[in-house]
Amino acid sequence: MQQEDQLLIDRLKNGDGTALTFLVGKYRTKAISTALRMVKDKMLAEEVVQDSFSKVYRNIKSFNGESSFSTWFFRIVYTTSLNYLQRQRRMPLIETFSEDETGEFTEPSVFTKLTSEEIETAIQSELKLMSPLYAVVIDLFYVQECTYDEIVAITGMPLGTVKTRLNRGRSILKNALLQQHSELVSEHTDMKLLGSIS
């Protein structure tokens, strides 16, 4: 995959505009997904991504291959989204975290007890409401399949913060799913209590 990117980058550096079409085809949807988690508006996300590709085109000669192209590109998308939020005075609040918290995960049983429509609705609406700084980490980890190190390189957040924001994001989504059915909340609480007793 990286070799394919390198070929396109070399062509783009030599002024071949069609290479940009291939890069757009390859990364556009992923980039809009990430930008959407930040700016929360599809039209604006598309604008952010166009702007990001424009930055790629203008600055491709400064890309020296120290990181992968996708990391470099997603860093551009992330900072461009932050710039848009800043321009609209919607900058997310920076929080400090401690790593001494319990790891949150959703029990597989939750998914079998809800219909796929309920799950999709809950996740979609929660991702829209979630703070951009949690939502972007969720997107990078689950949708773009980035490693922690790549998320650190893209966002510039410390590793501990990445892990904590991912955990908080997971916790928010889990609660959104549990809220779909009150009986799941009580069942889940009982399971937690039993777990802590044993």
Binding site: E99, E101, T102, G103, E104, F105, Y148, K163, N167, G195
Partner: peptide, 8 residues
């Protein structure tokens, strides 16, 4: 229960 680093 798992701690955050363990789960991560």
């Amino acid at each position: 229960k798992l701690t955050l680093p363990q789960l991560s």
